[in-house]
């Protein structure tokens, strides 16, 4: 999925935006609650300071987000508040709604105390700074 999307990418930003079908969460771990979960579309990039993740979770408010980092596994879960749909009768639909969940195993040592999470326009941005010991060091050759 990621490879296919990467080819559609245009740095100019003038390209027509394509619709990417929401991916349903499938995995060995089944949820104890009924209802489908979706995998948020995620960008991962690395800077010298650490790793940044940008996850698209439309409809998830900050009060319904849960981020945990345990044994090098980063887990993000966003719960959808669907109470607004009460009393509404669907007549035409193109996408489905649901909670979001995704986990990543991290190879770097993360400075757990300085993880920064921001939610803006349905996009969660997680900044995971490397612990000082894992930062790249420049070694001077004498």
């Amino acid at each position: 999925m990621s490879e296919q999307h990467a080819t559609q990418y245009s740095s100019a930003g003038a390209q027509k935006l394509a619709v990417s079908e929401k991916k349903e969460l499938t995995g060995s771990q089944e949820k104890t609650v009924p209802g489908r979960f979706f995998v948020p579309a995620t960008d991962v990039f690395e800077t010298e300071e650490g790793l940044t993740l940008a996850m698209e979770m439309p409809g998830v408010g900050r009060e319904n987000l849960e981020v945990s980092l345990e044994d090098g596994v980063l887990r993000v879960e966003g719960r959808l508040d669907f109470s607004g749909y009460a009393g509404m009768e669907p007549v035409y639909t193109e996408y489905n709604v649901g909670h979001y969940a995704r986990s990543f195993s991290l190879s770097d040592k993360i400075d757990q105390d300085n993880i920064d999470a921001r939610l803006e326009d349905g996009v969660l941005t997680l900044t995971l700074p490397r612990s000082p010991a894992a930062r790249p060091r420049r070694i001077e050759i004498t």
Partner: peptide
């Protein structure tokens, strides 16, 4: 728009950008 800070290396790119 999807922006990456300068000098970053992108590991995974799933978000799309463009006009609609």
């Amino acid at each position: 728009a999807v922006n990456y800070p300068e000098g970053s290396s992108v590991h995974r790119r799933e978000r799309l950008e463009g006009r609609f």
